[in-house]
Design a protein around this nucleic acid. Sequence first.
RNA 1: GGGUGGGUGCCCGAGUGGUUAAUGGGGGUGGACUGUAAAUCCACUGGCUAUGCCUACGGCGGUUCGAAACCGCCCCCACCCA
Length: 397
Amino acid sequence: MSDNAAWKTITRGVLEIIEEDDLRRKLAKGTPLNIKLGIDPTSPDVHLGFTVVMRKLRQFQDLGHRVILIVGDYTATVGDPSGKNKTRPILTHEEVLKNAETYKQQFFKIVDPAKTSVVYNGEWFSKLTFTGVTNLMSQITVAQMLERDDFQKRYRGGQPISLHEFLYPMMQAYDSVMIDADVELGGMDQKFNVLRGRELQRGLGKEPQVGLFLPILLGTDGKEKMSKSLGNYIGVNEPPQDMFHKLYSLPDALVESYFQLLTDIPLESIQAKLAEVASGKTNPNVLKEELARDIVTQYHGADAAEKAAVQEKKIHSGEALPENIPVLKVAAGEHWIPELIVKAGLAKSNGEGRRLIENGGVTFDDAKVSDPKAKAMVAGTHLLKCGKRSFVRVEVG
RNA sequence: GGGUGGGUGCCCGAGUGGUUAAUGGGGGUGGACUGUAAAUCCACUGGCUAUGCCUACGGCGGUUCGAAACCGCCCCCACCCA
């Protein structure tokens, strides 16, 4: 790959590089660089939001560089305050180690394990003495610490800031020192911490790392960042059909950023297609299908993607039912429909089941159910549908 | 240690003795429309096979025919002063 093409790959989707010249200089050396990613394994379910940074790591690897994954077993017990308006709950050491394993498993779906070193920062923090901590913290002042946007907001907004949270940025910086990081990746919310690493390295007479900042991927709701707790995520372990459906139903406004951050499709070609959509020449669903296919292929292979695409179309045209419809086994005889809905997990309570019926979203064997008191005669196999995409097969068993 | 303001349903937030699961908004779910999305419109949004019963407004007691609201104690949060 030419230097120019390599630069293009590295900077794709990147919001900010501090400093760009430093990065060019490091790359020009022609030797493998240490690309750092620190993780705080609090939620082990990896979704597409995390893959933005993982894909970037992979791109560095493909250019011959080395990834150093720092598992923050010590930092996690402090809890990163970045982007939070609250103090994080502190994890136990055991939880962290367990989460880290799950995380790694998913991490290596994208990142090449052969070019990765995994390090736990407890390796050095467990040996750091109180004097060591004091020295580390003497490298920063309270005023500097409070420059950080989220600390400032919390401080002004009357939200609590625990003093131990001040340790976090310095610990992250110390990690960079210990592994001689050349480049550290992170979201914009990591800017302060990454810069602390730069300063600390410089202060200790080392070559400062470069910060490479990537955008935060928005979730399927198109509003908030993708996160499990908000339920707007697409997990990398999700079945192809679900993944396809979520991508295909993405809000239009997100399509461009998803292409940019989650695929390798050349940006020029994406721009061209978006222009066609804007002019009304192309239906947006054509683009979304391409996006969905590409991403599903990455995790499940081309065959699965093709199958999911065909299936998705059939479902929407009413020609077919999704595969893998859950089956609910019940005794033969009459069953109150709201109860069946609850048993099938489509509603949380009988009351909610009734309401679904009252709202006209329920069919049993393609017949609309309109009476909340209705009972269904179960003898053999039946199809219960709540809303457009929730199906359950009800069988005697 | 002293002072002030708070703790209400998934979230925010009204409410300050009286039929009422408790205004409003957000979010969510279902329906119509559509391109699958967005926007818009409608409905629903504590539990219970229910014209009724139960649970709920930080906790525990109390006053009252009746309290989320009044009183007492306690717990928690924020801010200000030390």
